[in-house]
């Protein structure tokens, strides 16, 4: 597969912050690739360099086989972009905006067809200021799609949306991806990356700390379920030693997170161990292992940044 994006040794420094600190990426044509990481990881900076909006401090960037130098206009014709946050206008209608963006591109699709793709047909004559957050995001995606791009950049398309609007947007993006559009998406929602992306790079502090398909990355945890509990007094690594089926134990905030093969075997063993040490259970939950757990495993923090 030819590469749609090729990045080697990318570094970007703002005055005193190194936002991107040596990133390598390969994104194939037809792939939906996710940059997953907490706020401030350097995702937007990376994407804006790829979009030709920022000059990298160092490193090699090729987009659709070309470097930005000397090819800016040709490249812009072929990219579709939704920035992390943009207010396109207040008092223009949805359709007027899409027609405007269509006019910038030499080729493209019918604005009404794009509005159908993102599910905004019944809002096409509405002023942008009257749209909900989710509808504004769908409009941003419509503007990105209307130039019939070979490569689509979506920077945190669902940040700030309520869960229902987020699921609706996944539906829209999922359809675009399924039709084989190459797409680079950033997010700090692991569920979003798991649902939409073929491959994911987990980014933290300007570096890629893990790369692979969501299944591969979760597989690295060794177990398929995560058991999270709190107790008084707190257990220690020693007092948890030797619990059956526990692959990995991590202490995050005031909780322990145990990666286990099967929760129904681990839970009784854990309760027995707590009783032995005279500790009372204060919280207990189990969930399917996710990319969030991968991030915790790698960094000791959660993606939401609450540790």
């Amino acid at each position: 597969m030819p590469l749609a994006i090729e990045v080697r040794g990318l570094i970007h420094k703002y005055d005193d912050v190194t936002a991107v600190n040596g990133i390598d990426l390969d994104v194939s044509e037809g792939e939906c690739f996710g940059l997953l990481g907490p706020n401030g990881a350097g995702k937007t900076t990376t994407v804006e360099i790829l979009e030709g909006l920022l000059e990298p401090t160092a490193g090699l960037v090729r987009v659709l086989g070309q470097s930005w130098k000397g090819n800016a206009n040709a490249l812009r014709q072929r990219l579709g972009i939704a920035l992390q946050e943009t207010t396109l206008a207040d008092r223009l209608t949805v359709r007027e905006i899409v027609v405007l963006f269509r006019s910038f591109h030499d080729r493209g699709v019918d604005p009404d067809a794009v509005l159908a793709t993102v599910g905004l047909v019944d809002k096409k004559d509405e002023w942008v200021m009257k749209l909900s957050g989710g509808q504004k995001q769908r409009l941003a995606i419509a503007c990105a799609l209307v130039g019939e791009p070979d490569l689509l950049f979506l920077d945190e398309p669902t940040t700030g949306l309520d869960p229902q609007a987020r699921r609706d947007l996944w539906e829209v993006v999922g359809n675009v991806v399924r039709r084989g559009k190459t797409c680079l998406l950033t997010t700090h929602y692991m569920e979003e990356a798991e649902r939409l992306c073929h491959r994911v790079a987990i980014v933290d502090k300007g570096k890629v700390i893990a790369l692979g398909t969501p299944a591969e990355l979760i597989g690295r945890l060794g177990g398929s379920q995560v058991l999270e509990f709190g107790s008084a007094p707190e257990m220690t690594a020693e007092t948890l030693e030797g619990l059956p089926g526990v692959r990995e134990a991590r202490h995050v905030l005031d909780r322990w997170r145990l990666t286990v093969d099967a929760a129904h075997e681990a839970v009784p063993a854990l309760l027995e161990r707590l009783r032995l040490h005279g500790a009372a259970l204060t919280a207990l939950s189990t969930h399917q292992a996710s990319l969030d757990d991968v991030f915790v495993l790698l960094t000791g923090r959660t993606l939401r940044g609450d540790a």
Partner: peptide
């Protein structure tokens, strides 16, 4: 301020 300029700069406009 609304990043509209940035968004437009990313188009072939």
């Amino acid at each position: 301020k609304r990043k509209l300029l940035k968004r437009l700069a990313a188009t072939p406009m």
